[in-house]
Write a protein that binds this DNA or RNA. Sequence first.
DNA 1: CGCTTCGTTGAGCAATATCAAGTTCTGTGG
DNA 2: CCACAGAACTTGATATTGCTCAACGAAGCG
Lengths: 223, 223
Amino acid sequence: MYVTLSSAFTPATAAPGVVPAPVPAQRRTVSAGAHLFREGDIATNIYEITAGVFRLTRVLDDGRRQVIAFGLPGDIIGFPNGTAHHSDCEAIQAGAVITHRRHALNTLEGDHDTHQRLLHAALREISAMQDHLMMLARKSALEKVASFLVTLSERIGKSREGLTRCALPMSRADIADFLGLTIETVSRTLTRLRKAGVIAFDRAQTVLIKDMDALVSAAQGRD
Amino acid sequence: MYVTLSSAFTPATAAPGVVPAPVPAQRRTVSAGAHLFREGDIATNIYEITAGVFRLTRVLDDGRRQVIAFGLPGDIIGFPNGTAHHSDCEAIQAGAVITHRRHALNTLEGDHDTHQRLLHAALREISAMQDHLMMLARKSALEKVASFLVTLSERIGKSREGLTRCALPMSRADIADFLGLTIETVSRTLTRLRKAGVIAFDRAQTVLIKDMDALVSAAQGRD
DNA sequence: CGCTTCGTTGAGCAATATCAAGTTCTGTGG
DNA sequence: CCACAGAACTTGATATTGCTCAACGAAGCG
């Protein structure tokens, strides 16, 4: 559930001919700042986000932090590897999730449709993380920040009259830790884009993308 | 199939009580330099590596390259997202794979055991990529190179008399592109570790780890 | 209204990239 | 077996990017 690509999210409609299924899934709301799970917790559930914004983080012993992904509605989060979670998941904006039993990934239990959806989400996740990998390793600060804005606005931006308005539900620190930069560099880069007339700000938490083409170009390193 | 963690690889033994299954899997050998698949190819198979070393790469339009992972025996590679592959996979050392039909990931086809193994490999992959993400974004050149050597030697190193000998089947360029560094930085960092007495070289393609503790420390940033 | 957290800006610095030689290794043809 | 050519690797000098440290401004919250 990298901020990208999940646009290809497959809705939860049952395939024709498939039995309606005995769904052991439950809804759950999560208030801002609350953890869905923490590193070390036994991974019993997989979560399908229906509202809010979540943040998946890993922390190194010495405190260095990496935001692995932001989870938005439609994303599926919390895939287990082994029995325990290896990352923290916190709601940065109050939200809601559908919890699926971890066992829904076992072939012989639960319904086929849910199983397939979770599986495809996992595969999409692998692909999205490959993109993220590429970005972290090979892109400049400007490209990273621009890419992030483009991707986020594709997910949650509203376009009107050639202007795209996009909320930034996460702090600068979260963005920095997602992109592998410092807070200062993120801030400076946003300022640079603003001064270049590519973006503007309402509040620090709302970007207005004035020139999407330029932003996309910046994201790809042709600035 | 990041170079790490697959040590947790689950062998292909059938679970008790499971029908032997009509396996549609086939063996295939791949010579050095040959591609298993390329970006854009229709993803019809998933590959289970039984011998050799493979390299999974993504290339940006402008030529910037990222090695997503190295595939070693026991790893499973080529998970599809959508219909086409989004990366290239090349054998850097002659090898062999078992090919599984992509459909083995569909619940209702093929045997349950294979399905579960592939699924768990995918989940392990997600976890491994999270580690890789963290490393790319947050570690210094020294930490990256040291981590790489530690991880690789855990997979393919041979220890004897407190000395671990480990082949480096990939070129410096491959290592650099895996770690998000330049060839020169990789080379300099290896030299630095060598001059510090932590490692030594036979040929450029074989490391001797003389002080594993020091290497592990370096990998974790306490040098 | 003050406090605290978050974000921006500036100056200097450190790590790594880049550019440019050299050196070693490898394979090939004589 | 040796000489040579090309590739891979190492090393050095310099440039650049983004980090660190520090101060300041703005916004949420009691």
